[in-house]
């Protein structure tokens, strides 16, 4: 079971402000996710090759990957909560207030 301190640290990394009740509830839920991982760790996979994809795909150079017509700037910014007309405006993520983690 995750401790309250562990849940609070995860919440801080995700920029989530949890109430005490929420932290308790999510401790149970997050622990259940880890239990699933623990359950799978018990499976013997000796000799079974990893499956990254069910498809027979491999990385290739894209011969046809030429630049097309870009979206107009106004379209790109259309859904921005905040914009100066040329760029997205977002809260600073570096500097004062940055969590130690």
């Amino acid at each position: 079971m995750l401790t309250a301190a562990e849940v609070e640290r995860i919440a801080r990394l995700a920029r989530l402000d949890l109430t005490d009740d929420e932290a308790k509830r999510y401790a149970v839920q997050l622990s259940a996710v880890l239990d699933y991982a623990a359950e799978l760790e018990r499976v013997d996979v000796e000799g079974i090759p990893p499956t990254a994809s069910v498809l027979p795909i491999r990385s290739v150079m894209r011969a046809g990957d030429a630049p097309g017509a870009p979206l107009p700037r106004a379209s790109v910014l259309a859904n921005a909560p905040s914009s100066d007309g040329a760029s997205f405006e977002v809260p600073a993520t570096l500097g004062d207030g940055e969590p130690a983690d």
Binding site: V33, Y36, A37, E39, L40, V43
Partner: peptide, 12 residues
């Protein structure tokens, strides 16, 4: 035979 692991594998 591994069906009982499907839930954990699927969710993750």
């Amino acid at each position: 035979p591994a069906q009982h692991r499907a839930r954990a594998a699927g969710l993750l």
